[in-house]
Amino acid sequence: MSNNRVSRRQFLNYTLTGVGGFMAAGMLLPMVRFAIDPVLQTKAEGDFVQTSQKVADLTEEPVRVDFSYEQVDAWYKSEVTDTAWVYKQGDQVIALSPVCKHLGCTVNWAGDSAHPDQFFCACHGGRYEKTGKNIPGTPPTGPLDEYEVAEQDGLVMLGKKIANTLV
């Protein structure tokens, strides 16, 4: 015991190294954490927005699905509500944007009683087939846009608007 005595110089050395080590670690660790943060970040699921529509309730008949998300416009935050026409084709879920390709009105499924199996735009009589393909001879010049679709907990999730992939 007595030959293991710690001298005053040694004691001071140990304590200073110890305290200095903690201080260095306290400064370096946050820096390291900041540097690798992008890697650790959990990706939010794309930009998918959950709707209240159950996948199991979908049929081949398009239904109107409203969904809302928060939009930030500079300092102004607002809740935006958007709509999609959603139906099932085989096992695939299809979501079409209701925005007419002519001048941007909202189209309705079976909006014209003469054409019950088409999308109809009340503004200038534009018509689209169920796939979103525009019917020649009516004002629209292109097919309806499509939404990316995903499924979570049995609910339909809608993503970005993409060009129509069905026609």
Partner: peptide
């Protein structure tokens, strides 16, 4: 306006 954007 949203409904009839292209005509109104």
């Amino acid at each position: 306006e949203q409904q009839f954007k292209g005509r109104l």
